[in-house]
Design a protein around this nucleic acid. Structure first.
Lengths: 214, 214
DNA sequence: GGTAACTTACTGTGCTGTCAGTAACTAAAT
DNA sequence: ATTTAGTTACTGACAGCACAGTAAGTTACC
């Protein structure tokens, strides 16, 4: 009769090694893009051959997906630690993130490049970013609703647009900042724009662009 | 003295052919990215071999730069036709552009992908986008100043931040829209965000995120 | 006849992925 | 406790394609 074959455990240090690879991959993909960032460069950063990396992750596509997921687990943005901050606190958190990001252009660039690249044909990261934005929009919308309730006002229809807008400014500013750090203040500008949008939701005013204005 | 090397005349229809190539290149670079968009595919779209394209543009790098410049000349955004609309009109123009963009996802994607890709190491489009954003920010800032003057208020210090923010939302929304057209309204949302930011400049209110608020 | 607008054919490189092999480790059987 | 069997974590070599660029030739305009 056949003895059941069981897979034996991965070795203890392996997990740390994989993390090393993921970190290196984020750095390379961040600075050169996914298509333009070869496995060999990631490999030499962790003292391996590129075949070694493929042993761990199977393919470059899967490596990208895992890089993205890994950052999500470790990182600050979105779901921080365990609890999702609610209401005002979430917006404050976003602003804090913008300030923190000024100290880590590498990661900012990784997200900026990879998210835009993800919309191209057959990019393996597309699904990830689709879901990510959907989730972030939902969280921001929720925060808006909480704030409205706290103030005793009805949640206005603008909430969904405002949620997308908040995320959009942050991302858009990152690109401008990466292109010209001397002339774009990432954090201060993010704060300004977020406040403007939040104000527009909580305390709407007539459009300054209406056809009768000067 | 050095005789300036003068190339002899191109044939009459050649210009049109070059434009065809530029259009095809924008489409391919737009849908697959610069690094991932091969010359062969651009070539077959204009019934040529890739060597023919290199005959016209010398290298892939130079092709990208020319594509970018070409769109600038032809296109609506930024300097439209001849006159730069001033004041309120510029913001209305931006909103109109957002509406127009909903009908041409290809071009939107091209700019989204290429601008983000441009921040990577050694990308030939970087200089172009750097200058482009600098110029657009200046134009928007100018429009803000005109509006302030019209209303008899002093131009506030927030103008530079607001200018970057306006461009940032538009760009950021494009990415979200490209990823999930069913759930993101590009134009309506752009309009909302732009109005919010313009309002914040012309009629500032206390921050809803200040540490003493609920 | 000269040159612009190509094509064909080729070069060289860069890159992902495969494969066979090896040393080190783990798990069970003796 | 030592052997045995199997597995993991790699390396090195290479297949094999995709791609940018080049060189030489062809056609057709001026």
């Amino acid at each position: 009769m056949t003895t059941t074959r069981r897979a034996s455990k991965p070795r203890p240090e392996t997990l740390a090694r994989r993390r090393e690879i993921l970190r290196a991959a984020l750095e390379i993909f961040g600075s050169k893009g996914y298509n333009n960032g070869p496995l060999v460069e990631i490999a030499e950063q962790v003292d391996m051959t590129h075949a070694g990396i493929l042993h761990h992750f199977g393919s470059k596509d899967r490596l990208l997906v895992e890089v993205l997921r890994y950052r999500d687990e470790t990182d600050v943005e979105g779901i921080e630690g365990q609890h999702i901050p609610d209401g005002t606190e979430l917006f404050r958190h976003l602003v804090r993130t913008a300030f923190a990001n000024e100290e880590r252009p590498g990661i900012v660039q990784a997200y900026a490049v990879l998210s835009a690249e993800s919309v191209t044909d057959g990019n393996p990261g597309r699904e990830y970013f689709e879901q990510r934005y959907t989730q972030l929009r939902t969280e921001v919308a929720q925060a808006f609703r909480v704030m409205c309730e706290e103030r005793g006002i009805d949640a206005p229809a603008t909430i969904d647009r405002a949620s997308a807008s908040v995320l959009a400014v942050m991302d858009g500013l990152q690109v401008q900042w990466l292109l010209d750090r001397a002339n774009v203040e990432l954090a201060e500008t993010s704060a300004f724009a977020i406040e403007a949008i939040v104000t527009a939701v909580l305390d709407p005013r007539p459009s300054p662009l209406a056809p009768d204005a000067p």
